[in-house]
Simulated assay, not measured.
Amino acid sequence: MNFSQIKDSATNILSGNETKSFKLQAICDLLKSEISYYDWVGFYFKNGTNQELKLAEFAGEPTEHTIIPFGKGICGQVAVSNQNFVVQDVSAQDNYISCGWKVKSEIVIPIFVNEENIGQIDIDSHTVNPFTENDEALLEFICKKVAEIL
Rank of each mutant, 00 (worst) to 15 (best):
M1N: 14
M1S: 15
F3I: 15
Q5C: 11
Q5L: 15
I6P: 08
I6G: 08
D8S: 15
D8Y: 15
D8W: 07
D8E: 15
N12M: 08
I13K: 01
S15H: 05
G16T: 03
G16N: 06
N17E: 11
E18A: 10
E18G: 02
E18Q: 14
T19K: 11
K20T: 12
K20M: 08
F22H: 07
F22N: 13
K23T: 03
L24Y: 06
A26D: 13
C28M: 10
D29S: 14
D29R: 08
D29A: 10
L30P: 07
L31S: 06
S33R: 10
E34W: 00
I35R: 03
I35N: 08
S36L: 11
Y38A: 10
W40I: 02
W40G: 05
V41F: 05
G42N: 03
Y44H: 13
F45M: 12
N47R: 10
G48D: 06
T49A: 06
Q51A: 09
Q51R: 09
Q51H: 06
L55F: 07
L55H: 07
E57M: 13
E57P: 10
A59L: 03
A59I: 00
G60M: 10
E61L: 12
P62T: 13
T66G: 01
T66A: 02
I68T: 04
P69Y: 03
G71Q: 06
G73F: 08
G73N: 03
G73A: 05
C75P: 02
G76Q: 03
Q77H: 01
V78C: 08
A79R: 05
S81H: 04
S81L: 10
S81F: 01
F85Y: 11
V87M: 04
V87P: 04
V87W: 05
Q88W: 03
D89P: 03
D89R: 06
V90Q: 06
V90L: 14
S91Q: 15
S91H: 15
A92E: 13
A92G: 01
A92F: 04
Q93C: 07
D94W: 04
Y96V: 00
Y96N: 02
S98H: 07
S98L: 00
G100R: 07
G100C: 06
W101P: 08
K102V: 14
V103Y: 13
S105Y: 12
I107K: 01
I107M: 14
V108Q: 01
V108L: 04
P110S: 13
N117E: 12
N117W: 02
I118P: 04
I118R: 12
G119W: 07
I121F: 09
I121R: 09
I123N: 00
T127Q: 09
V128H: 09
V128C: 03
N129M: 00
N129P: 01
N129V: 00
P130Q: 12
F131R: 13
F131S: 10
N134T: 09
D135F: 05
D135Y: 09
L139I: 06
E140I: 14
E140Y: 00
I142E: 05
C143T: 14
C143L: 00
K144R: 03
K145C: 02
V146C: 08
A147D: 03
I149Y: 01
L150R: 06
